[in-house]
């Protein structure tokens, strides 16, 4: 983990409202593992101050790394206005990445929308390790097929679903998974996307006895395991998304009943034994 002031050497609006930045850092590019993230101080703007977490999307070995992000609020809006040769204050690489055992042979990578961000880095790593894998990508519509070409180039066979049926399977990526999983029979599923999607994928994985790892998103403050603010509910108690995660084995996650969509803020807003308390003391 390092705090760096890094140069931006590439910026592309890959589709409206989604940007890719190439950021120079030999250290982060050398040490980063797929599934890890960086904590970015977005250029100061109005009404926000905390850093924002972004998955490491890809590395240019020994030289730079990339992030892929969507403008959803003030922080990402400010970040979308950076220019090439601006510098960004970044802490990283952070968190635990995806895990893979040495003898793994086949994997299924499921991305919903921006979930493609960490999974492309994973896909490149799997190619390196000669693991056969199938990308399965869910999009709203044909014109928003983020990184489809890249996954298609790397994967054995690529599956796509669009909600409006303009490309591939019509429906959600979860429908597509449920239709195809018995044919693909992967040893492991890696997934990233909206928490509702991840929960359903974990149910399918459970049903078929397939190991499943997902990357969860929570609100973060410190990003390094200090503030205890990014808690997720697991069978082993509260775990911190920034330090124990963001990648978790779905067998450990306790998904919240109706709470989990809440503000997209937590992949695990479920109830636990702790009584609710008013706590002004942190």
């Amino acid at each position: 983990m390092l705090q760096i002031k890094a140069d931006i050497i590439g910026k592309e609006e890959v589709m409206p409202g989604v940007f890719n930045l190439i950021i120079v850092s030999p250290e982060i590019s050398r040490n980063a593992r797929p599934g890890q993230f960086v904590h970015v101080l977005c250029p100061s703007g109005d009404g926000f101050m905390l850093r924002r977490p972004f998955s490491i999307h890809r590395v240019v070995p020994g030289r730079a790394f990339e992030i892929l992000f969507q403008v959803v609020g003030k922080g990402t809006e400010a970040l979308s206005r950076v220019k090439i040769h601006d510098t960004l204050d970044i802490i990283g690489p952070l968190g635990t990445g995806f895990k893979y055992s040495e003898d793994i042979k086949s994997a299924l990578l499921i991305a919903g929308g921006l979930g493609a961000a960490p999974l492309l880095f994973l896909a490149e790593e799997l190619v390196e390790r000669q693991v056969l894998f199938y990308p399965m990508l869910g999009y709203k519509t044909k014109t928003q097929m983020l990184r489809y070409i890249d996954f298609k180039r790397l994967g054995k066979k690529t599956y796509a679903a669009t909600e409006d049926g303009s490309f591939g399977h019509e429906g959600t990526v979860v429908d597509l998974l449920n239709r195809t999983v018995h044919n693909i029979r992967p040893e492991i599923i890696y997934a990233c996307g909206p928490v509702g999607m991840l929960k359903k994928i974990s149910e399918t994985a459970d049903e078929f006895g397939i190991e499943c790892q997902v990357s969860l998103e929570t609100k973060m403050a410190c990003g390094i395991g200090v503030c205890l603010g990014c808690a997720c509910v697991t069978r082993q108690g509260y775990k911190m998304a920034c330090k124990d995660g963001p990648v978790f084995d779905t067998r450990d996650i306790l998904w919240g009943a109706e709470d989990y969509e809440k503000g997209r803020a937590s992949g695990c807003g479920c109830d636990n034994e702790a009584p609710p308390e008013t706590d002004s003391a942190g």
Partner: peptide, 16 residues
């Protein structure tokens, strides 16, 4: 102590 149920953080104007 386990601490409280998430979400535990929320950024607000000039604070959290």
């Amino acid at each position: 102590r386990d601490g409280n149920i998430p979400p535990r953080l929320c950024e607000v104007s000039s604070g959290m």
